[in-house]
């Protein structure tokens, strides 16, 4: 199960009809997102002072159920934090996240009609949503980067795994999802499983190192990190690169 790509890939503006869209794949997960908005809100979704962020998560196979609703509610509250919702009262920003591909656990035959998502997909969902929001030019306070970390206890020693595969999620003691804004603030921390405060702190540091690595241009601020944690991808740099590539290709004619 090491076939999962270690470097994330992204394409921005993949859907011609939506206001903004992005396709993102990392660690075996492929997600396409579309953003429409701000658009007219229906009476029941209308807030007098701010925009309603409407998130829909659609599994690749099967109908969405409680797990998807749970993910939607987490995403909705996190994204509302970074979108400048006060700018668009009485409107809706509609985000649809379509999961295209998720890594399969080759050792278990999964039930597919009842789609069940796990936490490990959260970073991909957040990352795609942020890219699509950027592509739709929705004003945001900050961008966000996210990652998932699993802790595995093996004979007393604790090991942290970045971007765990479904197999690893299954065997892990606990799984943590972290998202950070571009101002290095913790945006989202969700944990599942059995863990100690020390383990959570370790996971937090690992995730922060991946999500909040400073700009490589500033030389000399090399962070003191273990070998293990530097192995992860540099999410912030990746996000910037994806957008820069898109802008460069859009402005090619200039």
């Amino acid at each position: 199960m090491t076939a999962a790509t270690t470097t994330p890939e992204a394409a921005v503006g993949v859907l011609p009809r939506a206001d903004g869209s992005a396709k993102y794949s990392h660690a075996g997960y492929t997600v396409t997102a579309s953003v429409n908005g701000p658009i007219e809100a229906q009476r029941r979704d209308e807030h007098a002072y701010e925009a309603h962020v409407d998130v829909t998560v659609r599994p690749a196979a099967g109908v969405g159920a409680t797990r998807e609703r749970h993910l939607e509610s987490i995403l909705q509250s996190s994204l509302s934090q970074i979108i400048l919702v006060k700018n668009f009262p009485r409107s809706v920003i509609q985000i649809v996240l379509q999961i295209e591909d998720s890594p399969e656990n080759d050792y278990v035959n999964t039930k597919l009609v009842q789609a069940s998502l796990n936490f490990a997909i959260m970073p991909a969902l957040i990352q795609t949503a942020v890219l699509a929001l950027l592509s739709a030019a929705v004003p945001m306070r900050a961008t966000a980067t996210a990652t998932a970390v699993a802790t595995v206890r093996q004979g007393g020693a604790t090991k942290t795994i970045v971007d765990p595969s479904p197999r690893e999620v299954e065997t892990a003691q606990s799984v943590h999802v972290f998202a950070f804004t571009s101002h290095d603030e913790l945006l989202l921390a969700e944990s599942e499983g059995d863990f100690t405060v020390k383990e959570w702190d370790d996971s937090y540091e690992t995730a922060k190192a991946i999500c909040c690595r400073p700009e490589p241009t500033k030389e000399g601020i090399a962070m003191v990190l273990d070998d293990e944690t530097t192995a992860g991808p540099d999410m912030r740099h990746f996000l910037r690169l994806a957008m820069e590539t898109k802008v460069a290709s859009d402005l090619y004619w200039k």
């Binding site: 011609p16 690749a60 196979a61 379509q98 295209e100 591909d101 035959n109 039930k111 597919l112 009609v113």
Partner: peptide, 25 residues
């Protein structure tokens, strides 16, 4: 797609993705 049973069809700007799955019931 990389997995079996995923087909992505594009007609100009129309794009449809179909995914087949199976389970025992």
């Amino acid at each position: 797609g990389d997995q079996y049973g995923v087909a992505d069809v594009t007609f100009g700007r129309t794009r449809v993705l179909a995914k087949a799955s199976a389970e025992v019931t």
